[in-house]
Design a protein around this nucleic acid. Structure first.
Lengths: 216, 216, 216, 216
DNA sequence: AATGAATGAGTATTCATTCAT
DNA sequence: TATGAATGAATACTCATTCAT
């Protein structure tokens, strides 16, 4: 929600502003990100920032929005028709991973919304985002279960959390520790793990003694 | 590494200090945690903190140590003998989860060490911890593969990252969204996912069309 | 190296700042000089200082520079052509003395660079200044000796230190204890002492029994 | 003026205290010297210092006294009988220099009294000391002049300041820049400079054009 | 007599935000 | 519309001094 003033800026100036600001918020958690550093780097007046944006949070939210827009532009709408649930999951998160590879700054910026902050309005957004993302995953898995694609003993709620973590943090970590830039083999590994791990089309082994001795 | 002064404090005072300080660092990333807030909350003089600890980092490291000590005290050493790799993994992370349930403040504090910081000494520790933890997981999986417990197409490096994310972030998220406090069913779900997902004792399905169309 | 901001200040405000800051650093060694006192005296916000200067040292170095500039402006470049070494020495130091008389604050400020400090960058500068100043004096005397203007038994290195002290500390002290403001008679006294003390054009007396009994 | 408590201390403990405290005040100007550092180094309680001394100044003054006592003990009363004024001067300051060589800590401590401070009581003492020392030098030179040992054109007041600076700062600087430890040659140089510079037994040259063009 | 915990004002420095020009 | 100077509360940290035990 920048002011009109911001959009009236010459394109190159506006883009430079966006790029430098994004880099700052990508490099530091929201609370530690510094408007002072941004204007110092840009060589513009501090007041300008407040002519464009209401406050620090306003700027940050705009950048998050921008990150989403760029992601969409870079990846395009995913065509997931005709794919089973595992393929769809893999492709969705692979898209995010590709963004991280191609636009690390914007990807890092997006991840800032998963961190806690002292800014209450940000905390609220974070909670809501987490809840929506969880719901999405749950819905996807629930549909799969109803379509008979999941083993019967899979708890959709729990699996949603596990799969999300694996595909969000896990994929990213796996890719970061690799020297090569090839995403496909990594995504294939995750897909295989998921397929074996959840699919109904594979035989059920009897569980061993299991967690019954685990301290809870 | 607190000073002797700190250990000579009356027990209740010292414990209140530890509790309030832990809460501060659990609630905020290291850079944003505020000693000013701690002393304000405690109602003591600012100088007192520096009678006890050399500086902010010294206090933080002591609290991390304390978190480790409490974890050990709460859980005891894990007995993992005779268990297969999946059981072992599940129990290790379940232990961490149990700590999070019983001592959420201390668990959150521990997780702070996974976040980046502008304090160089802390960054060094974080990098080392991450590297050690990654290596541990890799070693575990590599041993399992050599013992024939993993499917042959599993890439140990990638799987290590995926499994770690699933069991660290994933388990935690799954538990947090539940209202009940029972850990066992959640851990069992993860165990099952892992077993089906990685174990060699289950048949290999042929992969469907796969990632060949995925944008990389 | 103040920021542009500082130079854009209204002249009177900037000059008042400079004067108050100079007075503070003139009155206290660098380590004890207090930015808090400066802003309290000026009645401005603490943050303002850091709009103008990067840090305490930056401010101090600017003031030292300013002192040099004012000295130059007040005295102008010295014309020492055609004078013998004693005249040249006397005039050089007399110039510093005149500055002290006319601008005691700025002179005191300059002398701060001769004091030790806990600021490493300042220590480095001090060491270098001392070394350069010693070398300058030595060179001057060495030239005089080569030109036959010095008695043959004069040790240039030792004489350099003695003469420097006499003309720096000594002249200043002599002038400070006088109520009148006339520099000339004082400088003439020093010149005479130097001339008799070092010049080759005066007869050599045989030294009395001398230092042979001195404890070393 | 330490308390009785201090003198009742076991000798070795008391001496260690004195030595460490002296080192601190020798290493830092009075304002910057830190009692915290002293007790940290000694490993004693902070309160102890205040059981021995009323405050920081009280401790410092005691140490200054002690420095005087040690100087006297190390050097003994100077026997200056039968010497002319130049010899007497040289020996007096040479004694101080010897102290600096043998006991650099105590000598540095003594010099602290020549530095300005924010402690008003210290400032008063400094002024008084300077005045007394100046008077002593003036008296010495005045007697010499009355005894016909000084050239007639020597201004006793000015010469007192010049000679003091040369023998205090100058001698010290000359000795410090030398690698060898021999004091005698350095003192001889100063003696010679003084003798030629001030003595009545040497012919008066006519002064050259002189300071008449010097800006005052 | 010694301890050492507590104090609180002091230090330099950073920062988001405001507002007159 | 842009500027950029001013603000003042925030940060971590130091210090001489006090006082109950």
């Amino acid at each position: 929600m920048p002011s009109e003033t911001f959009f009236n800026l010459p394109t190159d100036k506006r883009e430079r502003f966006v790029q430098v600001a994004a880099a700052e918020f990508a490099a530091h958690p929201y609370d530690s990100a510094s408007i002072t550093r941004i204007v110092r780097e840009l060589g513009i007046a501090k007041g300008s920032v407040y002519q464009y944006f209401a406050d620090k949070l306003d700027l940050f939210l705009f950048l998050l929005d921008e990150a989403g827009r760029r992601k969409l532009a870079a990846i395009g709408p995913l065509s997931l028709d005709g794919l089973d649930v595992f393929e769809r999951l893999a492709r969705m998160y692979a898209a995010g991973l590709a963004l991280y590879r191609d636009e690390p700054v914007w990807a890092a910026l997006s991840l800032r919304l998963t961190e806690p902050s002292r800014e209450p309005r940000l905390e609220a957004m974070r909670a809501e985002l987490a809840s929506r993302s969880r719901d999405g995953m749950r819905t996807l898995l629930a549909e799969a279960r109803d379509a008979g694609q999941l083993r019967h003993d899979v708890d959709v709620d729990v699996a949603a959390a596990l799969v999300h973590a694996m595909l969000a943090e896990g994929l990213l970590a796996a890719w970061r520790q690799r020297e090569d830039a090839a995403l496909e083999p990594i995504v294939d590994q995750a897909l295989s793990l998921l397929r074996h791990g959840l699919s109904a089309s594979y035989p059920q082994p009897e569980l061993p003694s299991g967690m019954s001795q685990t301290r809870t």
